[in-house]
Design a protein around this nucleic acid. Structure first.
Lengths: 110, 110
DNA sequence: TATTAATATAACTATTTAGCTATATAGTCA
DNA sequence: TGACTATATAGCTAAATAGTTATATTAATA
């Protein structure tokens, strides 16, 4: 059973996607993640468990709190999966090499 | 309710992902799509409906048959969504928390 | 027109899920 | 230690889902 099952299932819920969107700004505790929502703390904890089981986030122990953070690898897995379909919508399908070339020469960091 | 709900839900099933993988090679009828699987024809038809409701595929009428094809726009939507996380894993950004440390201690690749 | 072929729909069952409230666990602090 | 804080877990309910078989629909063909 592919882990993509869990990844895509986790992403199918808007609350969970919102949690990820918050976590992309940095680590956050359950209390912090809970705040913008109207749902209960146990529900948030369960959503976080689904995200963690999917490998999308991880938990760190910090005294009383359990801050969560994004796990990059899972997103990379999605990107890899999506790659096999990129040719389908890319306008540059016929010139895929050009696309790759463009990616190589993208702006260098300062 | 975002359509990404439906898209990610559709993708969470391995049978449906396999159907998409077949369709990336080109249009196929239900009978053709059914063949590699051990599940019933109605099940496949329902999976196809889920994929179509998500906008991932579309149906054409051809006499008796209803060949399905990939719909590129939905994949583009996934790619767009994923884009907001790309910084997380691309280049040296293995982990957002480590960005500053990394930039201090590591020479960016040329 | 009657038959066959391709596909969809209905009706049922078992499983999963998202929400809730109540409670348990574990760390911090006075 | 006792109170408080942060979070997890248990147990419940309602809704959704994936599978099944049986049947309906529609086009092609003899």
């Amino acid at each position: 059973m592919s882990s993509l099952d869990h990844v895509f299932h986790a992403l199918s819920d808007p609350t969970r996607r919102a949690l990820l969107a918050r976590l992309v700004e940095g680590e956050a505790t359950v209390a912090e993640l809970l705040q913008p929502f109207e749902i209960s703390q146990p529900s948030i904890s369960r959503h976080l468990k689904v995200l963690e089981d999917a490998g999308l986030i991880s938990t760190r122990i910090s005294g009383n709190a359990r801050p969560r953070r994004i796990e990059p690898a899972a997103f990379e897995a999605i990107s890899d999966w999506l790659e096999q379909y990129r040719m389908i919508w890319s306008e540059n399908y016929a010139r895929l090499d050009d696309v790759l070339e463009t990616m190589k020469t993208k702006e260098p960091k300062t």
